[in-house]
């Protein structure tokens, strides 16, 4: 589904990603762990198409198609979803209206009419119940005054509504207490199927107890220095990252 080869990316002429190789197949869950500043969030931004980053070398293909020239919205239309570490506040636009705009933009890109109001309502009800989201929450301004946990839950709610092929969850666990983490993880697990894939970006092994990855990658200084089964996460939790230096690979 996602195939990244020798990806180099920089911002303001500073190289952040220094040759990433990553392949994710349908039905798989991958986790990327690594210390602060290793480039994890940059990788997720580059996949989603953030323009501040310049891809200097390598390629990113999604379902066989080169993403390099595509705008962020075009990538979203193809089924890539990024759950943000710091979602943006939009005063005056309710969660419901925002998701309507998003869903109808997706539909428009496929040549479809706007979703019917009752259909939209049904979908919103179904997904918000799954994520234990209060109805009142949906009429509040997007992310404005939301707690950290509410913001993350709202991201997963958008993911549930959009039903992407590839969901990249960037530090979705940070700022969540254990109960909220369970609800969010449970939601992600319910959305998984054999045709979609998840890429988890995280500092901590904790999230991986609830969303169990097929592969764990360790990223240090802009490179994936080690990949392995889920047990690798426990090893990292125990030993830290110091034993994994880029030059060892």
């Amino acid at each position: 589904m996602l195939r990244i080869k020798n990806l180099h990316a920089s911002i303001d002429n500073k190289e952040i990603l220094k040759g990433i190789n990553l392949e994710i197949n349908p039905g798989e869950v991958h986790a990327i762990m690594g210390p602060n500043g290793s480039g994890k969030s940059t990788l997720s931004s580059v996949i989603a198409g953030k323009e501040e980053f310049e891809m200097t070398r390598g390629e990113i293909k999604f379902e066989g198609e080169d993403l390099t020239e595509l705008d962020p919205e075009e990538r979203a239309h193809k089924g890539i979803f990024l759950s943000f570490q710091y979602p943006v506040e939009i005063p005056g636009v309710s969660v419901t209206n925002f998701i309507k705009a998003s869903i109808n933009a997706h539909r428009k890109s496929q040549g479809l009419e706007d979703m019917k109001a009752n259909e939209m309502l049904k979908l919103i009800r179904e997904k918000s119940e799954m994520l234990e989201i209060d109805r009142k929450f949906l009429s509040r301004s997007l992310n404005q005054g939301f707690s950290g946990g509410e913001k993350k839950r709202n991201e997963i709610f958008q993911m549930a509504m959009l039903n992407p092929k590839l969901a990249i969850l960037d530090e979705t666990d940070s700022g969540l207490d254990i109960d909220a983490l369970k609800v969010v993880a449970n939601g992600v697990n319910k959305l998984r199927n054999k045709d979609n894939a998840v890429l988890l970006i995280t500092h901590y092994q904790r999230l991986l107890d609830y969303i169990v990855p097929d592969v764990v990658h360790v990223m240090v200084d802009g490179k994936i220095v080690k990949s392995g089964p889920k047990e690798l996460a426990y090893e990292l939790e125990e030993k830290g990252y110091d034993w994994l230096k880029p030059e060892q690979v």
């Binding site: 919205e73 979203a76 943000f84 710091y86 943006v88 925002f98 958008q158 959009l162």
Partner: peptide
């Protein structure tokens, strides 16, 4: 704000909107 624009676009909302 460029980060905000990126957020909205990553939700499929075109640049102008």
């Amino acid at each position: 704000d460029q980060d905000s624009l990126f957020y909205l676009r990553s939700r499929g909302i075109p640049l102008k909107e």
